[in-house]
Nucleic acid binder design. Structure first.
Ligand SMILES: [Zn+2]
Length: 866
DNA sequence: GCTGCCGGGTT
DNA sequence: AACCCGGCAGC
């Protein structure tokens, strides 16, 4: 029976992990359909017997009840073999729901706690020997537990109570001995009593057939999971279940935790438990659960799994769950752990998974008791994947891992729940140790990396590279990550690092390429006007991709020089550049008012002209121009990070936090940051703005230029290098050159800001029209223009209009026209300043809290609008 | 120097 | 999105 049951149970559980597994188990179970019928009959008979017994027992007492329950359970097991299949089948089908419920329960610390506690009980058990001994019992029992919950009543009838009782008792004894609980025993009994009623109830329901019962049970399970913590709602049965779970928890706690605190709690609980039952219990449960989780994690691996089962199973059968749960938990734990691990790995790194697994496998080997159980389980289930698991960490890890894996399938909630469950998560981490550390360490690095490059996207694809990349990003982080990886991998540690390093470079290139792509893709979006531009660009881009990059005439239009610069400079930036260019145009137009977005080539002059015109008119189109003359920007020199910030403090902060990994703000700064950024002076205000604006959008872009490797990127990218050559033209220093592009970007922002944007787009489109290369050039052109344009100013004008029109920028012109006025007005429009008193003046700095939010934030006052 | 508030940045 | 703040321009 036990084996079969275990198989069945696993099926459902497996379903949790994988529906497929569940299905298989269900199929196997179904074979016993005939048996089910028999089981049903037996169950009915047993029910009658039970009823009679119950009546007798009622008079007598709890102790007897226990016996009765015990037998029932035993019967259940027997029956379960046949019947359970249905259950399993139902469960498998339901598995998602149940799982969800479970997950939800997990989410809720309390609910999860109940379930977990059960599992924990088994896991917590400090003494492995006991566990091992129990494990056997558990193997048989585990099924029971589950069965009980699902079909307690029916099965109970079946059989041989005596055997069941004996086992049950034995288990209890073992548990009791292992756990310490003398007092608990009493509690346990009380619990059983409570449970009994539910069991009875269950019987009637299930008497006819298990299948009907099953559904009800599940709800209960759910209730238990969800409500139990909170609780009040549960019916008698539910309460019983809770009790059981609670008791188990207590026991587990005792064994696992050992802590006096918990004991005290347990003691308290027992006293309270019996009388108050559900209400009182629920609150305690959560705590316990949490405690258990925390404590248990270390001890038990599979606790998590058990928890789940308990949730489901417990509700139906209070008594059995207690005992069984542990056993089940053990089995489950392995599976869970495996799953969890995988999940964790995924979370951390896909690649790592393998390594982790290996490590896990090793661990398994180490872990004797658990491993054995696992093996058996595995055999039964024949689940290839998970076995790995692991015993390793304790339950907590299992939980987390489980959550992750399962979550992937159905348990997203669980993860969230895990996150919510402070305790679990916390506990889990410690357990994880290796994995946890990796994840944690990785996580930090990753975040940094992401900032620097964009790795986020890539990571999934290339685990190795991801690692390597990570390492690459930060020397320190890398080393750390490597170390961590080594731990995980154990054997392969050495090779991995090196290989990864070598790979890293390549990866980096890829990454950079990816970055560029991403930036490109994003850049268009960023720009408002771009819409059209985007379309055009997109087309152009695509075309570019297929076709040669340059073909586009952008060069021709603008002139060789431009073409050069544009493509080359921007290679990486190029992607962004196109949009930028468009934006740039806009701003210019806006500023200049002349507007037409010149084409790529034409644009330069035109744009310049326009700008100039605008500039002539209003100097700096944009409202406020910041400092006309030089603007100083700060560029991050970190490897892949091209971030440009307008303030030294900002850049320092950026370096400190992102690259140096120092949380402490300025306090910690030792001046090291100073080495990682450089000042970039921009002539034009717009440039400065552009840079600033750029930094956010195109940080990655900037980085590319710095990186030589970018070349890998599509054709478009290569041009970048040439661009680099140009850069010098724009800005004195190479870094400056980079900045120059940024300046262009700035323009974009400005444009967007003003709204002239649309116009600029067309120009870009025209330029881009040819190909991506053209695109980049366009941007490049824009850059160059922006920089150089000033001198050129005039020539451009005439040209630009024609080109712009030619390109079909009619809008641009119109817009330009429109825009131009705005500019003039723009200066005007820029709110000169609020006339009336604002909050600040009205309420004074003293009453700053009385200010409108806008005033508090130094924004335009919303309260006293002029 | 105060005030209003934009733009950039962080959380 | 909320919040903060540097900095600029008008007065
Ligand atoms: Zn206000």
């Amino acid at each position: 029976m036990a084996p079969v049951l275990s198989g069945v149970w696993w099926g459902p559980e497996a379903s949790v992990v994988r529906s497929e597994v569940a299905a298989d188990a269900g199929a196997a179970l179904w074979s016993g359909g005939v048996q089910l019928v028999l089981a049903v009959v037996l169950s009915t008979l047993t029910l009658l017997l039970l009823v009679s017994v119950l009546l007798l027992l009622c008079a007598s007492c709890q102790g007897q009840k226990k016996a009765a329950n015990g037998p029932e359970e035993g019967d259940h097991e027997n029956l379960m073999n046949g019947v359970p299949q249905k259950e399993t089948g139902s469960q498998s089908a339901e598995s998602p729901a149940t799982d969800v419920a479970v997950s939800s329960s997990r989410n809720g610390p309390l609910t999860s706690g109940t379930i977990l506690t059960d599992t924990q009980d088994s896991s917590p058990q400090p003494s492995e020997e006991i566990l091992s001994s129990q494990s056997e019992l558990r193997s048989s029992k585990c099924p029971q537990d589950r069965e009980l919950p699902s079909i307690p009543p029916d099965n109970a009838l079946a059989g041989p109570p005596a055997s069941g009782d004996s086992t049950y008792e034995v288990v209890k004894e073992i548990a009791a001995t292992s756990r310490d609980v003398s007092a608990e025993d009493s509690l346990y009994e009380t619990v059983k009593e409570i449970k009994d009623p539910p069991a009875h109830l269950g019987l009637p329901n299930g008497t006819t057939q298990p299948s009907p019962d099953v559904p009800p049970h599940h709800p209960h399970a759910l209730l238990n999971g969800h409500l139990s913590p909170v609780t009040p709602e549960r019916g008698p049965l539910c309460t019983g279940a809770e009790y059981a779970s609670i008791d188990l928890k207590k026991k587990s706690r005792h064994s696992a935790d050992m802590e006096s605190k918990r004991r005290s709690n347990n003691a308290n609980v027992p006293s309270h438990g019996p009388p108050e039952e559900p209400e009182d219990l629920p609150p305690p449960v959560p705590e316990k659960v949490l405690d258990e989780n925390d404590n248990q994690p270390v001890l038990v691996n599979g606790s998590a799994g058990a928890g789940l089962h308990n949730g489901e199973l417990d509700s139906p059968l209070s008594p059995a769950p207690g005992i069984d749960s542990p056993t089940l938990s053990d089995k489950e734990a392995p599976l869970y752990s495996s799953v969890a691990k995988t999940n964790c790995d995924e979370a951390v790194k896909e690649e790592d998974k393998e390594h982790d697994y290996s490590s896990i496998a090793e661990i398994k080997g180490l872990v004797t008791s658990s491993s054995d159980l696992y093996a058996t389980v595995r055999d039964i289930y024949s689940q290839p994947e998970q076995p790995e698991e692991p015993v390793l960490d304790g339950t907590d890890p299992g939980y987390e891992t489980i959550r992750l894996p399962k979550t992937s399938s159905s348990d997203d909630d669980r993860r969230a729940g895990a996150g919510e469950e402070g305790p679990d998560a916390a506990t889990a981490e410690p357990d994880y140790e290796c994995v946890g550390e990796q994840s944690a360490s990785n996580g930090a690095p990753e975040s940094q990396k992401v900032d620097g490059n964009g790795r986020g996207p890539e990571a999934p694809e290339e685990p190795r590279t991801g690692d390597g990349k990570r390492a690459g990003r930060d020397g320190d982080t890398r080393s750390v990550s490597l170390l961590e990886q080594k731990r995980k991998v154990v054997s392969s540690s050495i090779d991995v690092p090196h290989a990864r390093r070598s790979e890293e470079e390549v990866d980096m290139d890829k990454v950079t390429a990816a970055m560029v792509l991403t930036s490109l893709s994003t850049s268009p979006l960023v720009k408002s006007p771009p819409v059209k531009v985007n379309e055009v660009l997109s087309g152009s881009w695509k075309d570019n991709g297929s076709a040669g990059p340059f073909t586009p005439s952008s060069n021709s239009s603008s002139g060789g020089y431009w073409s050069w610069s544009a493509p080359s400079d921007q290679s990486n930036p190029s992607t962004p550049s196109p949009p930028l260019s468009a934006d740039n145009f806009k701003p210019f137009r806006g500023s200049g008012g002349s507007g037409g977005g010149a084409g790529p080539a034409g644009p330069e002059d035109p744009s310049l002209e326009e700008q100039d015109g605008s500039s002539l008119l209003f100097d700096e189109p944009i409202p406020r121009k910041r400092k006309n003359s030089m603007k100083v920007m700060f560029k991050c020199l970190w490897k892949n990070c091209g971030k440009v910030l307008s303030t030294a403090a900002g850049i320092q902060r950026h370096i400190r936090t992102i690259h140096l990994g120092r949380n402490c703000d300025s306090d910690c700064s030792d001046g090291e940051e100073d080495f990682y950024y450089t000042e970039i002076k921009l002539n034009t205000d717009s440039v400065a703005d552009g840079l600033s604006s750029l930094s956010p959008v195109s940080p990655s872009v900037l980085s590319p230029p710095s990186l030589p490797s970018l070349g890998h990127l599509p054709d478009c990218h290569r041009p970048q290098q040439p661009a680099d050559t140009k850069e010098p033209h724009g800005g004195g220093a190479t870094p400056l050159s980079r900045s120059a592009p940024s300046a262009l970007y700035l323009i974009h922002t400005d444009h967007a800001y003003q709204a002239t944007a649309p116009v600029s787009i067309p120009s870009s489109g025209s330029s881009s029209g040819s190909a991506c290369a053209s695109f980049t050039p366009a941007t490049g052109a824009s850059f160059s223009i922006s920089w150089q344009s000033p001198p050129v100013t005039f020539t451009g004008n005439t040209v630009s209009p024609s080109k712009s029109q030619g390109f079909g920028e009619q809008r641009s012109q119109t817009i330009a026209a429109l825009s131009s006025p705005p500019r003039a007005t723009a200066a005007l429009s820029r709110k000169v300043r609020g006339e009336g008193k604002k909050c600040r003046k009205v309420y004074g700095m003293e009453n700053r809290d009385m200010w409108c939010t806008a005033c508090r934030w130094k924004k335009a006052c919303q309260r006293f609008t002029d």
